[in-house]
Design a protein around this nucleic acid. Structure first.
Lengths: 328, 328
DNA sequence: CTGTTAGCGCCTTCAT
DNA sequence: ATGAAGGCGCTAACAG
């Protein structure tokens, strides 16, 4: 910028004015400065500008796993809103590791992001996040609520969605409905199980813990646990799968067994409609989660100091065939 | 940092030394400084540090669409390598828009990223990218080659992979093999078509342009174009789908028609093995593309000034059933 | 081992 | 409308 000023024979500040276009500069000088900028290929150094102004025009996003379709769709929506607000997006995956998540928060925070959208990993130290809020970094939690931190949240109606799936199976005449969810320590898995239990209770059906399996859908031994659930004396005639990983696994296992049990999955997935039979699901809208979280964040950055918002998005039942099979 | 220095009654520079841990400081002072840091909740401002050092410990990634499984898997791999090198990752989607891609490059570049991994959008002004190289920002192209820019590249063997898929169909006795690829302006679509044509030529089969369709798999009218291809007088007995979007669409359309044409898809996709019949594919390894590109970038950042590297990754045929159907 | 000085590139304040 | 001076928070280069 100094070089530009010299070449155009004006002061540093005049160049700054031309570059920013905020204050007025005489036409003659503006032309000279612009010519000099072109000649030198000058580009404003954002870092220096940000250091001075105390803003980075960057927001952070910490999710479980960027390669997971749910999170990559959410991230894409956040990115779109950030782009519309002329902000860049720093993305990181915590990989379900609370220590790594804490490290990422500190790392992003040190880079001076203006705001942070985060899916908190189970077991994170809430103080790390609370420190952000105090440091003036706006915080929005997605998919899971904040633990001991007062901040905006955007969640999905896990209980209601699961209950709707269970009611659909009940309406189809099923009475022995199993719930197969992810590890019990996960917030979303807990909520969905509660929704399942509530729907059964409302229908006056007694709870049977032999019909509930909570396990990591990626672990090999989970497959055997599921088959054991199927093979019990009074087996389920329908299954509610607690996430799309389990839905996929259940489809494969049922196929191997050649059993026509009814199935409703929580969370939609690509090609669910092209399987045989097409898989009925309770669909979340990950793009809407990301979009709303980002819009909430930018409204905070714009100065909205209203009360904390806790947005809950609905989940929609999509009947496709697998959930409409009659009980044996 | 000034406050810490005052509280610990040492100089600014001593605090800096303690924070960075590089130079040696007497134990007594170090303890005092550390106590002061804790008391004040001091955290080093990365921005200021970076401004001074001229490095940001941040790399950029510009891809077509973060929500696309191919790119999100690639991005996840890049992120992992960046994390191992203590770098953050700025991610942006160009959405196939060359103007937006140029804007993103300038935006990321202004933020002073140390390096950039990019899938160039068709129609981008090469000067925008060339400017980065000159500005000292290392550049690696992925999935598509650089256009008029001398930089490292990591590509997939699109021609060889497609040719392998075609040879597999030929070995199964097919002679009328169609190629259904994405818009002809896309680099990867062009390459895969060339691989298809080369494999046919090697086998001594005459080229028939009625068996080639190049169109956007997401456009409604593409479905009709595909059905027209199937309905011609001398129809194909096998199809090579040029990307996973087309594979999925072909599966659905064939299903509607109830036709048992053989199918091999380029690029693997989730649940390809759970469809009826399971879809044979020529699989790319998006994670490997991302990992190698990031490793290449960091070796450049570490000072490797060797000749430009042009890495080409293979694509592997995975027979699953749909590609093994005999010709009618 | 420790402190002082200067400056990264820009913007804000206050003069003119 | 313009410019000079000062400082954002930190670290490199030099003294001691």
């Amino acid at each position: 910028m100094n070089d530009v000023a010299k070449l155009a024979d004006v002061s540093l500040k005049t160049v700054s004015r031309v570059v920013n276009g905020t204050e007025s500069v005489s036409a003659a000088k503006a032309v000279r400065v612009e010519a000099a900028i072109r000649e030198l290929g000058f580009r404003r150094n954002e870092q220096a500008r940000q250091l001075r102004q105390g803003t980075t025009a960057t927001i952070g996003l910490i999710i479980e796993d960027l390669a997971d379709p749910f999170y990559s769709t959410l991230a894409r929506a956040v990115e779109e809103v950030a782009h519309a607000h002329h902000h860049a997006l720093l993305v990181s995956s915590s990989a379900e590791d609370p220590r790594r998540a804490e490290e990422l928060v500190r790392s992003l925070s040190g880079r001076g992001i203006d705001g942070l959208i985060i899916t908190p990993a189970e077991g994170m130290d809430p103080r790390v996040l609370a420190a952000e809020g105090e440091a003036g970094c706006s915080l929005v939690f997605v998919d899971r609520p904040s633990v001991d931190v007062d901040a905006d949240t955007v969640l999905v109606d896990n209980r209601g969605g699961t209950a709707a799936g269970v009611r659909h199976l009940l309406a189809g005449g099923h009475r022995r409905i199993a719930f197969v969810g992810d590890t019990a320590s996960l917030y979303t898995a807990q909520e969905r199980r509660i929704g399942y239990l509530e729907a059964l209770e409302t229908a006056g059906i007694e709870r049977d813990d032999n019909l509930v399996l909570m396990a990591n859908p990626a672990a090999p031994e989970s497959g055997e646990a599921f088959l054991a659930l199927l093979d019990q004396a009074d087996p389920p005639t329908a299954i509610l799968a607690g996430n799309n990983r389990w839905s996929v696994r259940v489809v494969r296992l049922l196929r191997q067994r050649g059993i026509g049990v009814a199935l409703v999955g929580f969370d939609d997935f690509e090609l669910a409609d092209a399987l045989e039979p097409p898989v009925s699901v309770v669909a979340q809208d990950p793009a809407a989660v990301g979009r709303l979280a980002a819009e909430l964040l930018f409204s905070r950055l714009a100065g909205d100091t209203g009360p904390r918002q806790h947005i809950q998005l609905g989940a929609t039942l999509i009947p496709r065939g697998s959930g409409e099979r009659a009980p044996r």
